[in-house]
Design a protein around this nucleic acid. Structure first.
Lengths: 142, 142
DNA sequence: TCTTAAATGAGAATTATTATTAAATAGAAA
DNA sequence: TTTCTATTTAATAATAATTCTCATTTAAGA
């Protein structure tokens, strides 16, 4: 039932359930590292030789279109993806370029409160995410 | 004196002041549109034929390194830049992919207040920016 | 001026992404 | 089940974005 979590999501979106799609969604979810296509290929090539990069790009685009995953905004000029759809934020580590998740319920409440009162003229807000730029003390390699 | 604003910034960073650097910084500042290298080239090619794309990439990278400009986090897989360093946020228009500035002093106060109390363990915050995803009502082409 | 380290331009090289198309296959229907 | 067909995949060509290389030019200090 746990392994079927991915199958279910794909099926519910009206997409055909293929081993490639399931594997890509699984890896993206478990890596939880905002990987680009290349990084997903790297992980999958052991269990999945013959998986084409083009398929990875296609699949990620398709899953994003169906809102099963999202595109991550990054400063490195690569397409990056995220399987987490719940409200969370991103720590951008300046030295390494890594993007880590930052969960903060208090912050979420404050933001929701603020934007429920103050709206942006003509603009319908769908999602709010903080990019928090900074660096770890002591080169901590988290 | 106004035109020298750019010269001054470049000089203060310890960089050589070249016409190319001044022009690129000027265009980036005046466009205020989070352009990529290609878009800057497009604008400059009239007044500046012979300006190499490589020079634009180099210059943008150099200026970013010296913190005269910043790299913009985008979802389109391109390197984008911003000459505005003051605290502001970005509206990401879902249909067009455009990134617009969003200034909000009240919001800034709330964020500064919040993060001055609650720190992120081991992490030194340098900048906070909201990515506000959404869309304009009525296809408004701002 | 002269000198020199740094910057530029031109284009090659590399990397990232998209497009094309023949072969394979998921899933609906028989 | 087996058949059928629209979708999906793999392979690779094509394109787009970025970086690299290196000969030439130039900013700026002596």
């Amino acid at each position: 039932m746990n392994a079927n979590k991915y199958i279910l999501k794909i099926k519910e979106a009206g997409l055909k359930v293929t081993p490639q799609r399931v594997a890509i969604l699984k890896v993206l979810t478990e890596l939880n590292n905002h990987p680009c296509a290349e990084e997903i290929a790297e992980v999958l090539k052991k269990d999945f030789p013959g998986l084409s990069l083009a398929t990875i790009y296609n699949t990620l685009e398709t899953l994003a279109q169906k809102q099963i995953i999202t595109k991550v905004q990054s400063a490195d000029g690569k397409l990056r993806f995220d399987a987490r759809l719940d409200m969370h934020h991103h720590l951008h580590e300046m030295n390494t370029g890594k993007i880590e998740d930052y969960y903060d319920e208090d912050l979420n409440s404050i933001l929701q409160e603020y934007f429920s009162n103050k709206s942006i003229p003509g603009f319908i807000v769908q999602d709010i995410k903080l990019q928090i730029k900074g660096e770890y003390i002591n080169q901590k390699l988290k």
